[in-house]
Design a protein around this nucleic acid. Structure first.
Lengths: 255, 255
DNA sequence: TAGTGGTCTAGACCACTAA
DNA sequence: TAGTGGTCTAGACCACTAC
């Protein structure tokens, strides 16, 4: 008391609420357990529903909660570690790491991808590229959707392919790619929001936070392919292991 | 017309708004330019301010906008690529890559970090560890704040250190660490929200989205140190280059 | 002091899920 | 059909910045 200015710089209600809820989750709830609904929680804490939702959104962003319309809010399991760059260089599809080919079409790549492909063998900006869609499933859960862009100039053999569409064609494109000698690759990771099609594939709403992993594949002739993989940010922890050891605990469970 | 069910599955207003704004940003605005204020934008589009804000939040999450209280909303520059794992294994502080040591204290590590350190030389759970704080500046902009945890058992020489506090002590801890032989390291990346102290260092509000990069450093004896780096998710693209080539364009500018 | 974005309220209605 | 989370509104006040 006295001169203690305990609340002279009050933190926002939703922030305090998030802290309180976070501690409650640690102590009183088990993974998978269902929380009281939003209207009741808001009443219990004496705040408007919108304020309560702001706190829940933060906790969902941190992977502590899972909310499903029509069902309720449940306590999320720890994030799953997903290996992204463990074993040196390799073409996509060379190891059975949970990726499954879905489809392949020929289409003009988005501008940002074209910029990355510009350093490839005989690549013209408005030329259609083979576009392979894959999804990745880990522990029974869809964690990522990928679009792999392969200019026709990179894999000449593809002009005589038989499968017109579907997984068979996607696998054929990957097979042709693997014939080439891979000289190197590099990756970048950034935050994004799920496009409508990716969101559907990942069982999320459009705009859900995702981690975008962009990979460039190099041959002696330049950039032979580019992939953009969209990982669920709420459930995934991307691991880049030089050693074979896996990080098993989350980085910041209850800091 | 006719049977075209153009709006039979209407997308949310804020989502449509985001798309419209995104296109406007591409066409009519230059980097750094100030947008009209939120009340006017909301009026212009005929929506409530909260709805307009939902669209702006998405665009900020994608790194397209920058909002500052008391100032306004500006068009953000493209994300800066920040090298995170380019040059094989190395102890923190061994290369001049923008990191600056701030301080070092002895304190008990958070539970999640203790779990990672458990495989180290003679590490007891409640034993204080040397905690080094560093910040990383790229192109004049603070992009990351890091806490590096080094158990006393990893660097025995530190008991006789002279600098009691401040950058000098932080550098001393790093120097002792670099005496050891580094056997390997691994990394993981996940989405988080900025703690109050990190947010301040990064010039963001608490709860701002960040990319958490957790690195484990191994010697022959086990886990010798763990670092948790907090990168601004709005302005940073983390790059993991095997080759020395830099990705210069964003992965998905206008998809 | 004026203008900005940040927080908060108390409602309303909608879309979805499961019984 | 009942109950959940998702969207949206029309206000209010606050904290911060720059003049």
């Amino acid at each position: 008391m006295g001169t203690t200015q305990l609340e002279s710089v009050p933190e926002p209600k939703y922030w305090h609420l998030k802290t309180v809820l976070s501690e409650a989750l640690d102590q009183d709830f088990a993974v998978g357990e269902v929380l009281p609904n939003e209207r009741e929680l808001a009443a219990r804490f004496g705040v408007a529903r919108a304020t309560l939702r702001q706190a829940l959104e933060q906790l969902e962003l941190e992977g502590r909660l899972q909310r499903r319309r029509g069902v309720g809010t449940t306590v999320a399991p720890p994030r799953v570690g997903v290996a992204v760059g463990s074993t040196g260089h390799s073409w996509p599809g060379e190891s059975a790491d949970g990726w499954e080919a879905v489809d392949a079409v020929e289409a003009v790549a988005p501008a940002a991808v074209r910029a990355l492909l510009a350093a490839g063998p005989g690549f013209a900006a408005d030329q259609p590229v083979h576009t392979v869609r894959r999804t990745r499933v880990t522990q029974g859960q869809a964690v990522a959707a990928e679009l792999l862009y392969v200019p026709a100039g990179s894999v000449p053999g593809l002009s005589a392919i038989d499968a017109p569409t579907g997984p068979a064609r996607a696998r054929a494109v990957l097979r042709e790619l693997q014939r080439l000698t891979l000289d190197g690759q590099d990756r970048s990771v950034e935050l994004g929001s799920a496009r409508a099609d990716d969101a559907k594939e990942l069982d999320r709403l459009p705009g859900a936070p995702v981690l975008l992993v962009t990979t460039r594949y190099f041959t002696a002739e330049g950039t032979a392919a580019v992939s953009v993989a969209t990982y669920r940010a709420d459930t995934c922890r991307l691991t880049f292991g030089d050693s074979g050891v896996e990080i098993t605990a989350p980085a910041r469970a209850a800091s």
